[in-house]
Design a protein around this nucleic acid. Structure first.
Length: 804
RNA sequence: GGGCGGUUAGCUCAGUCGGGAGAGCGCCUGCCUUACAAGCAGGAGGUCGCGUGUUCGAGCCACGCACCGCCCACCA
């Protein structure tokens, strides 16, 4: 065995071996209690990023612990077709060739996507394996598998028949590049420098004017009213009268509505229902017409008269010129504000009125909210539970149709009269008029519509399968904050609607790992760090450890040091194993604690095991791995291993057997976090019954905790000795450990006795002062006062031990 | 504008119940000690973001402020 642990080769070897030996397998017929973890399926063309790496580390740690604890674990792998994300990637690829998707046509485009997937898809699952994630890879699913497509169609038909899916014309977020509607959740916002233009609208009766402010002069052509706040005294006299819209010279009413901000601009708002969400609502509530002057391509349309075909920028210029010519341009001022962009292509979103398919949320969210309220599903941490609840409560109806080409096509056919027939397979005739001329809807579904089914569609739903009976409902889902509204809440209401039960009881929202400088990790910002690089440099074990260690709060900075610490832990473990293995030739593991240090380490192993179980159970991975680090370095190596060395070399059979047994327990506790190095060491131990990955989790018996204090006395004595060179009085057994661990160190007294005496004297003085303070002894809780007395006694004892 | 998280050693972060300011890394000193120099032993280094309050006592509780990050939001 080398004196320095290198994960190279070791990790890949065990990963192959575990998978080939079928040790990741979940079995529907296994009688043991099931534990199911629904892991987010990555985008099929995606690469492993730091968020995935953290997510896998956390989930796999739980999975491995549960597996050792005897559960029938299902850790489900798979891919998401990632509708618009994949579509966008291919469309960009085409653009590089000077082509658009319309040049290819739908069929050829979709074939192109499949080619793309064959070339670039699926690679991320190799990276999942490389980090040691023990998913049951035989069960890989894809949201475009035939069976999955059937599940999606079944879901759609189900909702349609219940009346939850309907078609309506509304203002939507329109991406002019992709030429599709998007949901609010598919946008991002960016501050841009714009101009706010103040425009005079003359009153129709010639009696003056009203000035409005706008950032989009071109939309003036579609104005149908001017709105003011009913309480705005400046304009009350105008309400009910008419103004003339510039350029088109149309007479429109002045209306009053409380949604107008008095403070903004002039307090008067031009109302353009065709091109602005707020105006759309105002128009609808006031019965105003909806005019449209911008088309799906983002250009001015034929209703824009002489401006037809212009870009909005050019149209803005033409309108501004008209205003100047007519002396209706009051002023322009610089204005910085947020605009909505398509999160995929960064094109500015155009609010447009469009006929789309919607899913009613009212009935679906009610039981889901109830489940959250009753904690049948609990988000961790608590603050995320509140966020999830609030955002579901306020979720508007869901626009589920998209006009892109990659995705699940709606299971819906239309006849020439426009009747829609919804069916799981192609119908012969229109359900309403019997027409046989049916054309399938060209729309595809929002990609999250299929994601919502993941926890049960992967198990064979809507068939009644053994997998579903065994593994649904599941237990856990780990993910990041960004997709609570997109995915988590939708899985919950879909599971309740279709399966009658929530898909999992707990959702862990893990930390976001930012770049070392605190900015978001992002490829486009150049701040991204590749987790695979960390794995190559430090190993998967160290990377897993490091990610869990650093992820303690909502947002954390990437810390290379945390991963290096993991590497040190692996190396320390490797070396203490060498010590024990070299010194225990021929021995077999057995817990025969004959001496104080042995009872003590067994007590520490038990105590730490309980801590780790509690912390992992509460999803506090950062503190769990910190505990394991302390146990390994401080307790196991610095004290226990040092203390038993003389007895090991002297051939003490109890010490040897117990050392092997204690090492086994240590390896078991560390395996969920650092599976590879622990399995490698395990394979060198005598008498092993199975691979460590499926070895039984220790039964923690608290038999020796009483000995912990004796060892603590030794540790106190050691500290004093180090500070002052003067040992405390100890019993025989304690003295033996003291000699073994502390004596060999080349300590120098250095006259530190005086410094130590001064330190202790100060402590004694502080404690005496507190205890003589009546308001302390009188008002502080009795146990606090008692603890202070004990401290005082202890300091006095130590002072006595120093002599005078 | 709203919500959440954060601000503690040079860096990354712990700090449970209000009662001794901590770890890892980095730095300095001494050691290649038959498991480990990715090691061991020792050391320096802090106005706990700022202010007010509660308390015998505040890193911790309350209120206010500042700054950083993330998410949400229809001020055109």
């Amino acid at each position: 065995m080398e004196s320095r642990y290198s994960p190279d080769g070791v990790e890949e070897r065990w990963q192959r071996s575990w998978e080939e030996e079928g040790l990741y397998a979940a079995d529907a017929d296994d009688p043991r209690e099931a534990f199911t973890i629904a892991h987010p399926p990555p985008n099929v063309t995606g690469d492993l990023h730091m968020g995935h790496a953290l997510q896998l580390s956390l989930a796999d740690t739980i999975v491995r612990m549960k597996r050792m604890q005897g559960y029938n674990v299902l850790f489900q792998p798979g891919f998401d077709h990632a509708g618009i994300a994949t579509h966008n990637a291919v469309e960009r690829h085409l653009a590089a060739e000077g082509l658009t998707r319309w040049d290819l046509g739908r069929e050829a485009f979709v074939e192109r996507v499949w080619e793309w997937l064959r070339e670039y898809g699926g690679k991320i699952m190799l990276q999942f394996r490389r980090i040691g994630a023990s998913l049951d890879y035989r069960r890989e699913r894809f949201t475009m598998d035939d069976a999955y497509v059937r599940a999606v169609n079944h879901f759609f038909v189900h909702l349609y028949r219940k009346g939850y899916i309907y078609r309506a014309s509304r203002i939507v977020n329109w991406c002019p590049f992709h030429r599709t509607a998007l949901s609010d959740l598919e946008l991002e916002h960016e501050d841009v420098d714009d101009a706010l233009t103040y425009v005079r609208y003359p009153l129709a009766d010639g009696d003056g004017h009203v000035t409005i402010a706008t950032v989009r002069p071109a939309t003036i052509l579609a104005d149908v009213a001017v709105a003011v706040h009913p309480a705005d005294e400046r304009y009350q006299h105008l309400v009910g009268r008419e103004v003339v819209v510039p350029v088109v010279e149309r007479r429109v009413p002045v209306i009053a509505d409380e949604r107008v901000e008095i403070e903004f601009g002039t307090g008067a708002l031009k109302v353009t229902p065709g091109h602005d969400p707020l105006d759309y609502e105002l128009g609808r509530d006031h019965g105003l017409p909806e005019l449209t002057v911008i088309g799906p391509d983002g250009l001015m349309n034929s209703d824009a008269g002489p401006l037809a075909g212009l870009t909005q920028q050019d149209a803005d210029e033409r309108v501004l010129q008209w205003l100047r010519d007519h002396d209706q341009l009051e002023r322009r001022e610089p204005y910085r504000h947020a605009v909505a962009l398509c999160e995929r292509c960064k094109t500015r979103i155009e609010p447009l009125i469009s006929l789309q398919w919607w899913c009613r949320m009212e009935e679906l969210k009610r039981p889901a909210l109830q489940a959250l309220r009753e904690r049948r599903v609990t988000y961790h941490p608590e603050s995320q539970h509140r966020f999830a609840f609030d955002s579901l409560e306020h979720a508007p109806d869901w626009n589920i149709s998209r006009q892109i080409w990659w995705g699940h096509q709606l299971p819906l056919w239309e006849c020439p009269d426009g009747h829609a027939t919804v069916a799981e397979t192609e119908p012969d005739s229109c359900a309403e008029c019997g027409s046989r001329e049916l054309v399938r809807s060209q729309d595809v579904l929002d990609t999250w519509f299929s994601s919502a089914l993941w926890p049960f569609a992967t198990l064979g739903w809507p068939e009644e399968t053994a997998d579903l009976r065994t593994f649904y409902p599941g237990d856990l889902n780990t993910t990041d904050r960004g997709i609570i509204r997109l995915w988590e809440n939708r899985m919950i209401f879909s599971g309740l609607e279709l399966m009658g039960e929530v898909p999992f009881s707990d959702v862990v929202i893990h930390a976001t790992v930012n770049a070392p400088d605190g900015r978001r990790m992002s490829k486009s910002l150049g701040t991204g760090l590749d987790p695979m690089e960390q794995i190559e440099r430090h190993g998967a074990d160290a990377t897993r450890y490091g990610l869990m260690k650093m992820a303690s709060t909502q947002d954390v900075r990437f810390s290379a040091g945390a991963i290096e610490e993991g590497g040190k832990l692996a190396n320390k473990l490797w070396n203490v194993s060498r010590l024990i293995l070299q010194a225990t030739e021929g021995a077999r593991p057995a817990e025969r604690p004959a001496a104080l240090e042995e009872r003590w380490i067994l007590a520490r192993l038990t105590a730490t095991q309980r801590d780790v179980e509690r912390l992992v159970g509460g999803f506090d991975f950062s503190h769990a791995v910190a505990e394991l680090y302390r146990l390994t370095f401080d307790d196991f190596c610095d004290w226990y291993a040092e203390a038993i060395k003389p007895r090991l070399y002297a051939g003490d059979e109890d010490a040897r057997a117990t050392a092997l047994a204690a090492l086994e327990r240590l390896l078991k506790l560390l395996h969920p976090v650092m599976p590879h190095v622990t399995e490698e060491i395990w394979s060198n131990l005598p008498d092993r019954q199975s691979r460590l990955i499926v070895a039984a989790w220790p039964q923690a018996e608290d038999r020796y905790s009483g000995d912990a204090t004796a060892l603590e006395r030794v540790q106190d004595a050691a500290e004093m000795f180090r500070r002052s060179g003067v040992p405390m009085n100890l019993g025989d057994e304690e003295r033996r450990i003291f000699e073994a661990v502390v004596r060999p160190e080349k300590m120098r007294a250095n006259g530190n006795v005086e410094l130590e005496r001064a330190r202790l004297a100060k402590e004694v003085e502080r404690a005496e002062r507190m205890l003589s303070n009546k308001s302390f002894t009188g008002r502080a809780p009795a146990d606090v006062v008692a603890a202070e007395r004990e401290k005082l006694e202890r300091y006095r004892r130590q002072l006595d031990a120093l002599g005078s």
